[in-house]
Design a protein around this nucleic acid. Sequence first.
DNA 1: AATTATTTGTTAAAATAATAACAATTCCGC
DNA 2: GCGGAATTGTTATTATTTTAACAAATAATT
Lengths: 216, 216
Amino acid sequence: MDDKKVSMAVVKRLPRYYRYLTDLLKLEVNRISSKELSEKMGITASQIRQDLNCFGGFGQQGYGYNVEILQREIGKILGMQNKFKAIIIGAGNMGNAIANYSLFAERGYSIVAIFDNNTEKVGKIINNLAVLDMNELENYIKNNRVDIAILTVPFQYTSQIAERVASLGIKGIWNFSPMDLRLSHEVKIENVHLSDSLMVLGYRMNKKIEEDKASL
Amino acid sequence: MDDKKVSMAVVKRLPRYYRYLTDLLKLEVNRISSKELSEKMGITASQIRQDLNCFGGFGQQGYGYNVEILQREIGKILGMQNKFKAIIIGAGNMGNAIANYSLFAERGYSIVAIFDNNTEKVGKIINNLAVLDMNELENYIKNNRVDIAILTVPFQYTSQIAERVASLGIKGIWNFSPMDLRLSHEVKIENVHLSDSLMVLGYRMNKKIEEDKASL
DNA sequence: AATTATTTGTTAAAATAATAACAATTCCGC
DNA sequence: GCGGAATTGTTATTATTTTAACAAATAATT
Protein backbone atom coordinates (compact mmCIF):
# COMPACT_ATOMS: atom_id res chain seq x y z
CA MET A 1 0.00 0.00 0.00
CA ASP A 2 1.32 3.45 -0.83
CA ASP A 3 -1.25 4.89 1.54
CA LYS A 4 0.92 7.27 3.47
CA LYS A 5 -1.47 10.11 4.26
CA VAL A 6 -1.21 12.95 1.80
CA SER A 7 -1.87 16.40 3.21
CA MET A 8 -4.26 18.89 1.65
CA ALA A 9 -1.33 21.30 1.28
CA VAL A 10 0.20 18.85 -1.18
CA VAL A 11 -3.05 18.07 -2.98
CA LYS A 12 -3.76 21.74 -3.59
CA ARG A 13 -0.43 22.06 -5.36
CA LEU A 14 -1.10 19.16 -7.75
CA PRO A 15 -3.26 21.10 -10.24
CA ARG A 16 -0.51 23.68 -10.40
CA TYR A 17 2.10 21.03 -11.25
CA TYR A 18 -0.29 19.65 -13.82
CA ARG A 19 -0.63 23.09 -15.38
CA TYR A 20 3.10 23.71 -15.66
CA LEU A 21 3.74 20.24 -17.03
CA THR A 22 1.02 20.68 -19.63
CA ASP A 23 2.64 23.96 -20.68
CA LEU A 24 6.01 22.22 -20.98
CA LEU A 25 4.48 19.46 -23.07
CA LYS A 26 3.07 22.04 -25.45
CA LEU A 27 6.57 23.47 -25.78
CA GLU A 28 7.76 19.94 -26.59
CA VAL A 29 10.03 19.75 -23.56
CA ASN A 30 10.78 16.09 -22.87
CA ARG A 31 12.54 16.15 -19.55
CA ILE A 32 12.77 18.43 -16.58
CA SER A 33 14.62 18.38 -13.29
CA SER A 34 13.12 19.47 -10.01
CA LYS A 35 15.63 22.32 -10.08
CA GLU A 36 14.46 23.70 -13.42
CA LEU A 37 10.82 23.28 -12.48
CA SER A 38 11.41 25.00 -9.17
CA GLU A 39 12.81 28.03 -10.97
CA LYS A 40 9.82 28.21 -13.29
CA MET A 41 7.27 27.79 -10.51
CA GLY A 42 8.94 29.82 -7.81
CA ILE A 43 9.01 27.07 -5.21
CA THR A 44 11.88 24.94 -3.90
CA ALA A 45 13.14 21.87 -5.72
CA SER A 46 13.01 20.07 -2.42
CA GLN A 47 9.30 20.66 -2.11
CA ILE A 48 8.66 19.41 -5.61
CA ARG A 49 10.56 16.19 -4.99
CA GLN A 50 8.86 15.64 -1.66
CA ASP A 51 5.40 16.38 -3.07
CA LEU A 52 5.83 13.98 -5.96
CA ASN A 53 7.21 11.30 -3.69
CA CYS A 54 3.97 11.16 -1.76
CA PHE A 55 2.68 9.23 -4.75
CA GLY A 56 5.72 7.27 -5.88
CA GLY A 57 9.02 7.73 -7.61
CA PHE A 58 8.32 9.20 -11.00
CA GLY A 59 11.81 10.48 -11.61
CA GLN A 60 15.18 9.00 -12.34
CA GLN A 61 18.41 9.92 -10.61
CA GLY A 62 20.80 11.81 -12.81
CA TYR A 63 18.09 12.44 -15.39
CA GLY A 64 15.11 14.15 -13.80
CA TYR A 65 11.48 13.65 -14.74
CA ASN A 66 9.97 12.72 -18.07
CA VAL A 67 7.44 15.48 -18.63
CA GLU A 68 4.88 13.36 -20.45
CA ILE A 69 4.91 10.55 -17.91
CA LEU A 70 4.82 12.88 -14.96
CA GLN A 71 1.94 14.88 -16.39
CA ARG A 72 -0.03 11.70 -17.05
CA GLU A 73 0.67 10.36 -13.56
CA ILE A 74 -0.45 13.55 -11.87
CA GLY A 75 -3.54 13.47 -14.06
CA LYS A 76 -4.26 9.98 -12.75
CA ILE A 77 -3.73 11.04 -9.15
CA LEU A 78 -6.20 13.86 -9.73
CA GLY A 79 -8.68 11.32 -11.05
CA MET A 80 -8.88 12.64 -14.59
CA GLN A 81 -9.36 9.16 -15.98
CA ASN A 82 -12.83 9.16 -14.41
CA LYS A 83 -13.98 11.64 -17.04
CA PHE A 84 -16.44 13.08 -14.56
CA LYS A 85 -19.77 14.33 -15.92
CA ALA A 86 -21.15 17.53 -14.47
CA ILE A 87 -24.42 19.40 -14.61
CA ILE A 88 -24.80 23.10 -13.98
CA ILE A 89 -27.70 24.23 -11.86
CA GLY A 90 -28.47 27.89 -12.37
CA ALA A 91 -28.25 29.34 -15.89
CA GLY A 92 -27.45 32.87 -14.77
CA ASN A 93 -24.31 34.79 -15.56
CA MET A 94 -22.00 32.54 -13.59
CA GLY A 95 -23.61 29.38 -14.92
CA ASN A 96 -23.15 30.74 -18.41
CA ALA A 97 -19.51 31.56 -17.79
CA ILE A 98 -18.78 28.09 -16.44
CA ALA A 99 -20.64 26.41 -19.29
CA ASN A 100 -18.54 28.29 -21.82
CA TYR A 101 -15.21 27.86 -20.09
CA SER A 102 -13.28 25.47 -22.31
CA LEU A 103 -10.53 24.65 -19.82
CA PHE A 104 -12.73 22.25 -17.91
CA ALA A 105 -13.13 20.07 -20.97
CA GLU A 106 -9.35 20.12 -21.47
CA ARG A 107 -9.03 18.85 -17.92
CA GLY A 108 -11.36 15.95 -18.60
CA TYR A 109 -14.59 17.31 -17.16
CA SER A 110 -17.67 17.58 -19.34
CA ILE A 111 -20.78 19.61 -18.81
CA VAL A 112 -23.66 17.39 -19.86
CA ALA A 113 -26.70 19.48 -18.89
CA ILE A 114 -27.80 22.84 -17.54
CA PHE A 115 -30.86 23.42 -15.39
CA ASP A 116 -32.81 26.47 -14.32
CA ASN A 117 -36.19 27.03 -12.72
CA ASN A 118 -36.87 30.22 -14.65
CA THR A 119 -39.18 29.30 -17.53
CA GLU A 120 -37.79 32.18 -19.59
CA LYS A 121 -34.37 30.56 -19.53
CA VAL A 122 -35.57 27.02 -20.17
CA GLY A 123 -34.92 26.02 -23.77
CA LYS A 124 -32.25 28.66 -24.28
CA ILE A 125 -29.10 27.22 -25.85
CA ILE A 126 -25.86 27.63 -23.91
CA ASN A 127 -22.74 26.19 -25.49
CA ASN A 128 -24.80 23.63 -27.46
CA LEU A 129 -26.90 22.58 -24.49
CA ALA A 130 -30.58 23.49 -24.13
CA VAL A 131 -31.37 24.69 -20.62
CA LEU A 132 -33.65 22.16 -18.92
CA ASP A 133 -36.36 22.86 -16.41
CA MET A 134 -35.49 22.10 -12.81
CA ASN A 135 -38.41 19.70 -12.52
CA GLU A 136 -36.66 17.45 -15.05
CA LEU A 137 -33.68 17.10 -12.71
CA GLU A 138 -34.72 13.82 -11.07
CA ASN A 139 -35.60 12.27 -14.39
CA TYR A 140 -32.35 13.38 -16.03
CA ILE A 141 -30.15 12.04 -13.27
CA LYS A 142 -32.03 8.76 -13.25
CA ASN A 143 -31.30 8.25 -16.94
CA ASN A 144 -27.83 9.74 -17.31
CA ARG A 145 -24.55 9.48 -15.55
CA VAL A 146 -23.94 12.61 -13.47
CA ASP A 147 -21.04 12.84 -11.04
CA ILE A 148 -20.87 16.50 -10.15
CA ALA A 149 -23.40 19.28 -9.64
CA ILE A 150 -22.09 22.77 -10.20
CA LEU A 151 -24.24 25.15 -8.17
CA THR A 152 -24.53 28.67 -9.53
CA VAL A 153 -27.87 29.51 -7.98
CA PRO A 154 -28.86 32.39 -5.70
CA PHE A 155 -27.73 32.09 -2.08
CA GLN A 156 -31.12 31.27 -0.63
CA TYR A 157 -31.68 28.20 -2.83
CA THR A 158 -28.25 26.71 -2.42
CA SER A 159 -28.74 24.51 0.66
CA GLN A 160 -31.97 22.94 -0.51
CA ILE A 161 -30.65 22.23 -3.98
CA ALA A 162 -27.48 20.76 -2.52
CA GLU A 163 -29.56 18.37 -0.44
CA ARG A 164 -31.73 17.57 -3.43
CA VAL A 165 -28.82 16.56 -5.67
CA ALA A 166 -27.18 14.68 -2.80
CA SER A 167 -30.36 12.65 -2.33
CA LEU A 168 -30.25 11.82 -6.03
CA GLY A 169 -26.86 10.20 -5.55
CA ILE A 170 -24.53 12.88 -6.82
CA LYS A 171 -21.06 12.49 -5.34
CA GLY A 172 -19.54 15.93 -5.82
CA ILE A 173 -20.68 19.52 -5.52
CA TRP A 174 -18.85 22.57 -6.78
CA ASN A 175 -20.52 25.42 -4.99
CA PHE A 176 -20.32 29.05 -6.07
CA SER A 177 -22.64 30.50 -3.43
CA PRO A 178 -20.86 32.45 -0.71
CA MET A 179 -21.57 29.90 2.00
CA ASP A 180 -19.74 26.90 3.35
CA LEU A 181 -21.94 24.00 2.28
CA ARG A 182 -21.57 20.97 4.45
CA LEU A 183 -23.22 17.59 3.86
CA SER A 184 -22.45 13.97 4.68
CA HIS A 185 -18.95 12.75 3.92
CA GLU A 186 -20.41 10.69 1.09
CA VAL A 187 -20.65 13.89 -0.95
CA LYS A 188 -17.44 15.80 -1.60
CA ILE A 189 -17.87 19.55 -1.73
CA GLU A 190 -15.63 22.36 -2.93
CA ASN A 191 -16.81 25.81 -2.03
CA VAL A 192 -15.52 28.54 -4.33
CA HIS A 193 -15.38 31.89 -2.59
CA LEU A 194 -14.59 34.41 -5.30
CA SER A 195 -14.97 37.41 -3.06
CA ASP A 196 -12.58 35.92 -0.50
CA SER A 197 -9.86 36.04 -3.11
CA LEU A 198 -10.75 39.64 -3.98
CA MET A 199 -10.64 40.59 -0.31
CA VAL A 200 -7.19 39.08 0.11
CA LEU A 201 -6.11 41.27 -2.79
CA GLY A 202 -7.68 44.22 -0.96
CA TYR A 203 -5.78 43.32 2.20
CA ARG A 204 -2.47 43.24 0.38
CA MET A 205 -3.12 46.50 -1.45
CA ASN A 206 -4.19 48.20 1.77
CA LYS A 207 -1.12 46.91 3.59
CA LYS A 208 1.09 48.40 0.92
CA ILE A 209 -0.73 51.73 1.22
CA GLU A 210 -0.16 51.73 4.98
CA GLU A 211 3.49 50.79 4.61
CA ASP A 212 4.07 53.51 2.02
CA LYS A 213 2.37 56.01 4.31
CA ALA A 214 4.53 54.91 7.26
CA SER A 215 7.80 55.18 5.35
CA LEU A 216 7.33 58.85 4.48
CA MET B 1 3.95 49.42 16.23
CA ASP B 2 1.64 46.42 16.04
CA ASP B 3 3.72 45.11 13.17
CA LYS B 4 4.14 41.54 14.24
CA LYS B 5 4.25 39.70 10.94
CA VAL B 6 0.92 38.23 9.96
CA SER B 7 1.07 35.01 7.98
CA MET B 8 -0.84 34.42 4.78
CA ALA B 9 -2.56 31.48 6.46
CA VAL B 10 -4.20 33.96 8.82
CA VAL B 11 -5.00 36.54 6.14
CA LYS B 12 -6.75 33.96 4.01
CA ARG B 13 -9.09 33.20 6.89
CA LEU B 14 -10.10 36.82 7.43
CA PRO B 15 -12.70 36.99 4.64
CA ARG B 16 -14.27 33.89 6.11
CA TYR B 17 -14.52 35.50 9.53
CA TYR B 18 -15.97 38.56 7.89
CA ARG B 19 -18.58 36.45 6.18
CA TYR B 20 -19.69 34.66 9.32
CA LEU B 21 -19.80 37.90 11.31
CA THR B 22 -21.88 39.57 8.61
CA ASP B 23 -24.32 36.66 8.74
CA LEU B 24 -24.53 36.98 12.54
CA LEU B 25 -25.17 40.71 12.24
CA LYS B 26 -28.05 40.03 9.87
CA LEU B 27 -29.47 37.68 12.49
CA GLU B 28 -29.11 40.52 15.00
CA VAL B 29 -26.69 38.62 17.19
CA ASN B 30 -24.83 41.14 19.37
CA ARG B 31 -22.13 39.10 20.99
CA ILE B 32 -20.29 35.89 20.31
CA SER B 33 -17.59 33.91 22.05
CA SER B 34 -14.72 32.24 20.28
CA LYS B 35 -16.25 28.95 21.40
CA GLU B 36 -19.61 29.59 19.74
CA LEU B 37 -17.99 30.90 16.59
CA SER B 38 -15.69 27.89 16.47
CA GLU B 39 -18.68 25.57 16.49
CA LYS B 40 -20.35 27.47 13.67
CA MET B 41 -17.20 27.62 11.54
CA GLY B 42 -15.77 24.21 12.29
CA ILE B 43 -12.39 25.44 13.49
CA THR B 44 -10.92 25.64 16.98
CA ALA B 45 -11.67 28.49 19.35
CA SER B 46 -7.97 28.70 20.00
CA GLN B 47 -7.27 29.46 16.38
CA ILE B 48 -9.91 32.16 16.28
CA ARG B 49 -8.47 33.89 19.34
CA GLN B 50 -4.95 33.65 18.03
CA ASP B 51 -5.91 34.87 14.56
CA LEU B 52 -7.75 37.90 15.92
CA ASN B 53 -4.94 38.72 18.28
CA CYS B 54 -2.58 39.27 15.39
CA PHE B 55 -4.39 42.55 14.98
CA GLY B 56 -5.22 43.53 18.54
CA GLY B 57 -7.56 42.64 21.36
CA PHE B 58 -11.08 43.01 20.07
CA GLY B 59 -12.72 40.90 22.75
CA GLN B 60 -13.42 41.16 26.42
CA GLN B 61 -12.73 38.51 28.99
CA GLY B 62 -15.86 36.90 30.39
CA TYR B 63 -17.95 38.45 27.61
CA GLY B 64 -16.62 37.49 24.21
CA TYR B 65 -16.66 39.64 21.10
CA ASN B 66 -19.08 42.32 20.06
CA VAL B 67 -20.18 41.17 16.61
CA GLU B 68 -20.64 44.62 15.11
CA ILE B 69 -17.29 45.94 16.31
CA LEU B 70 -15.42 42.83 15.31
CA GLN B 71 -16.96 42.78 11.85
CA ARG B 72 -16.07 46.43 11.34
CA GLU B 73 -12.51 45.90 12.57
CA ILE B 74 -11.93 42.95 10.25
CA GLY B 75 -13.36 45.03 7.44
CA LYS B 76 -10.77 47.70 8.20
CA ILE B 77 -7.95 45.16 8.31
CA LEU B 78 -9.08 43.95 4.89
CA GLY B 79 -8.93 47.52 3.62
CA MET B 80 -12.62 47.90 2.86
CA GLN B 81 -12.54 51.58 3.80
CA ASN B 82 -10.48 52.19 0.66
CA LYS B 83 -13.59 51.59 -1.45
CA PHE B 84 -11.42 50.29 -4.24
CA LYS B 85 -12.54 50.99 -7.80
CA ALA B 86 -12.15 48.22 -10.35
CA ILE B 87 -12.39 47.92 -14.09
CA ILE B 88 -13.10 44.69 -15.91
CA ILE B 89 -11.06 43.95 -19.00
CA GLY B 90 -12.74 41.36 -21.18
CA ALA B 91 -16.52 41.48 -21.61
CA GLY B 92 -16.92 37.78 -22.30
CA ASN B 93 -18.89 35.34 -20.22
CA MET B 94 -16.69 35.58 -17.16
CA GLY B 95 -16.45 39.37 -17.38
CA ASN B 96 -20.22 39.45 -17.57
CA ALA B 97 -20.59 37.20 -14.56
CA ILE B 98 -18.21 39.30 -12.47
CA ALA B 99 -19.87 42.53 -13.53
CA ASN B 100 -23.23 41.22 -12.41
CA TYR B 101 -22.08 39.67 -9.14
CA SER B 102 -23.57 41.86 -6.46
CA LEU B 103 -21.49 40.55 -3.58
CA PHE B 104 -18.45 42.59 -4.60
CA ALA B 105 -20.40 45.81 -4.13
CA GLU B 106 -21.53 44.58 -0.69
CA ARG B 107 -17.88 44.10 0.15
CA GLY B 108 -17.03 47.67 -0.80
CA TYR B 109 -15.65 47.12 -4.29
CA SER B 110 -17.23 48.89 -7.23
CA ILE B 111 -16.94 48.11 -10.90
CA VAL B 112 -16.58 51.44 -12.66
CA ALA B 113 -15.94 50.42 -16.26
CA ILE B 114 -15.74 47.44 -18.61
CA PHE B 115 -13.44 47.19 -21.62
CA ASP B 116 -13.24 44.91 -24.62
CA ASN B 117 -11.37 45.03 -27.92
CA ASN B 118 -14.20 43.38 -29.85
CA THR B 119 -16.10 46.16 -31.62
CA GLU B 120 -19.26 44.07 -31.55
CA LYS B 121 -19.22 44.15 -27.78
CA VAL B 122 -18.30 47.82 -27.44
CA GLY B 123 -21.34 49.87 -26.49
CA LYS B 124 -23.24 46.88 -25.12
CA ILE B 125 -24.71 47.59 -21.68
CA ILE B 126 -23.64 45.28 -18.86
CA ASN B 127 -25.11 45.99 -15.46
CA ASN B 128 -25.61 49.68 -16.31
CA LEU B 129 -22.14 50.13 -17.79
CA ALA B 130 -21.52 50.56 -21.50
CA VAL B 131 -18.60 48.43 -22.67
CA LEU B 132 -15.72 50.70 -23.70
CA ASP B 133 -13.19 50.09 -26.44
CA MET B 134 -9.78 48.95 -25.29
CA ASN B 135 -8.13 51.91 -26.96
CA GLU B 136 -9.93 54.17 -24.50
CA LEU B 137 -8.18 52.45 -21.60
CA GLU B 138 -5.30 54.92 -21.21
CA ASN B 139 -7.61 57.88 -21.43
CA TYR B 140 -10.08 56.43 -18.94
CA ILE B 141 -7.46 55.62 -16.34
CA LYS B 142 -5.91 59.05 -16.73
CA ASN B 143 -9.22 60.71 -15.91
CA ASN B 144 -10.72 58.36 -13.36
CA ARG B 145 -9.60 56.64 -10.22
CA VAL B 146 -8.94 52.98 -10.91
CA ASP B 147 -7.31 50.73 -8.30
CA ILE B 148 -7.87 47.24 -9.60
CA ALA B 149 -7.97 45.62 -13.04
CA ILE B 150 -10.00 42.45 -13.27
CA LEU B 151 -8.63 40.42 -16.17
CA THR B 152 -11.11 38.12 -17.87
CA VAL B 153 -9.41 38.00 -21.24
CA PRO B 154 -8.20 35.03 -23.28
CA PHE B 155 -4.98 33.41 -22.07
CA GLN B 156 -2.75 34.74 -24.84
CA TYR B 157 -3.55 38.40 -24.14
CA THR B 158 -3.22 38.24 -20.38
CA SER B 159 0.47 39.03 -19.91
CA GLN B 160 0.55 41.99 -22.24
CA ILE B 161 -2.61 43.51 -20.79
CA ALA B 162 -1.28 42.99 -17.28
CA GLU B 163 1.85 44.92 -18.17
CA ARG B 164 -0.22 47.59 -19.88
CA VAL B 165 -2.40 48.27 -16.85
CA ALA B 166 0.62 48.10 -14.55
CA SER B 167 2.37 50.75 -16.63
CA LEU B 168 -0.75 52.91 -16.24
CA GLY B 169 -0.31 52.86 -12.48
CA ILE B 170 -2.87 50.27 -11.46
CA LYS B 171 -1.97 48.73 -8.10
CA GLY B 172 -3.95 45.50 -8.10
CA ILE B 173 -4.76 42.77 -10.60
CA TRP B 174 -7.35 40.06 -10.16
CA ASN B 175 -6.47 37.56 -12.83
CA PHE B 176 -8.82 34.86 -14.12
CA SER B 177 -6.52 33.42 -16.80
CA PRO B 178 -5.05 30.04 -15.92
CA MET B 179 -1.52 31.35 -15.50
CA ASP B 180 0.49 32.65 -12.59
CA LEU B 181 0.94 36.30 -13.43
CA ARG B 182 3.98 37.85 -11.83
CA LEU B 183 4.96 41.52 -12.00
CA SER B 184 6.88 43.95 -9.81
CA HIS B 185 6.02 43.99 -6.14
CA GLU B 186 4.45 47.39 -6.67
CA VAL B 187 1.47 45.63 -8.22
CA LYS B 188 -0.40 43.13 -6.06
CA ILE B 189 -1.81 40.18 -7.97
CA GLU B 190 -4.32 37.51 -7.08
CA ASN B 191 -4.56 34.67 -9.55
CA VAL B 192 -7.88 32.83 -9.52
CA HIS B 193 -7.54 29.27 -10.72
CA LEU B 194 -11.05 27.98 -11.03
CA SER B 195 -10.06 24.69 -12.59
CA ASP B 196 -7.59 24.03 -9.76
CA SER B 197 -10.49 24.00 -7.37
CA LEU B 198 -12.44 21.65 -9.63
CA MET B 199 -9.45 19.32 -9.87
CA VAL B 200 -9.12 19.17 -6.10
CA LEU B 201 -12.76 18.12 -6.03
CA GLY B 202 -11.88 15.49 -8.65
CA TYR B 203 -9.01 14.26 -6.50
CA ARG B 204 -11.21 13.85 -3.47
CA MET B 205 -13.96 12.09 -5.40
CA ASN B 206 -11.45 9.77 -7.02
CA LYS B 207 -9.87 9.00 -3.67
CA LYS B 208 -13.25 8.01 -2.28
CA ILE B 209 -13.86 5.78 -5.29
CA GLU B 210 -10.52 4.04 -4.72
CA GLU B 211 -11.15 3.65 -1.01
CA ASP B 212 -14.60 2.19 -1.62
CA LYS B 213 -13.11 -0.21 -4.16
CA ALA B 214 -10.39 -1.27 -1.69
CA SER B 215 -12.82 -1.92 1.16
CA LEU B 216 -14.86 -4.45 -0.80
C1' DA C 1 -20.65 42.03 47.98
C1' DA C 2 -18.86 37.66 47.48
C1' DT C 3 -18.69 33.65 44.64
C1' DT C 4 -18.84 31.07 40.66
C1' DA C 5 -19.05 30.84 35.51
C1' DT C 6 -17.06 32.50 31.42
C1' DT C 7 -13.96 33.94 28.36
C1' DT C 8 -10.15 36.39 26.67
C1' DG C 9 -5.08 37.17 25.56
C1' DT C 10 -0.97 34.93 25.72
C1' DT C 11 2.44 31.64 26.53
C1' DA C 12 3.75 26.77 25.97
C1' DA C 13 3.50 22.41 23.58
C1' DA C 14 2.44 19.57 19.78
C1' DA C 15 1.72 18.81 15.09
C1' DT C 16 2.48 19.84 10.45
C1' DA C 17 4.98 21.62 6.61
C1' DA C 18 8.96 23.28 4.27
C1' DT C 19 13.76 23.21 3.53
C1' DA C 20 18.27 21.34 3.59
C1' DA C 21 21.44 17.60 3.35
C1' DC C 22 23.23 13.66 1.40
C1' DA C 23 23.83 8.73 -0.05
C1' DA C 24 22.56 6.13 -3.99
C1' DT C 25 21.98 6.05 -8.68
C1' DT C 26 22.08 7.33 -13.37
C1' DC C 27 23.64 9.95 -17.22
C1' DC C 28 27.09 11.51 -20.42
C1' DG C 29 31.38 12.67 -22.48
C1' DC C 30 35.67 10.72 -23.52
C1' DG D 1 33.67 1.17 -19.79
C1' DC D 2 35.44 4.83 -16.53
C1' DG D 3 35.01 9.12 -13.93
C1' DG D 4 32.82 13.25 -13.06
C1' DA D 5 28.51 15.81 -13.09
C1' DA D 6 23.78 15.69 -12.22
C1' DT D 7 19.71 14.46 -9.94
C1' DT D 8 16.58 11.73 -7.41
C1' DG D 9 14.46 9.65 -3.12
C1' DT D 10 14.75 9.99 1.53
C1' DT D 11 16.11 11.25 6.02
C1' DA D 12 17.18 15.08 9.18
C1' DT D 13 16.55 19.74 10.46
C1' DT D 14 14.28 23.94 10.77
C1' DA D 15 10.32 26.81 10.49
C1' DT D 16 5.59 27.47 10.69
C1' DT D 17 1.07 26.57 12.14
C1' DT D 18 -2.19 24.74 15.11
C1' DT D 19 -3.77 23.33 19.44
C1' DA D 20 -3.74 23.27 24.36
C1' DA D 21 -3.20 25.38 28.79
C1' DC D 22 -3.85 28.81 32.03
C1' DA D 23 -3.55 33.34 34.53
C1' DA D 24 -6.12 37.57 34.51
C1' DA D 25 -10.28 39.79 33.94
C1' DT D 26 -15.16 40.22 33.45
C1' DA D 27 -19.91 38.93 33.88
C1' DA D 28 -23.67 36.69 36.07
C1' DT D 29 -25.72 34.90 40.29
C1' DT D 30 -27.03 34.58 44.81
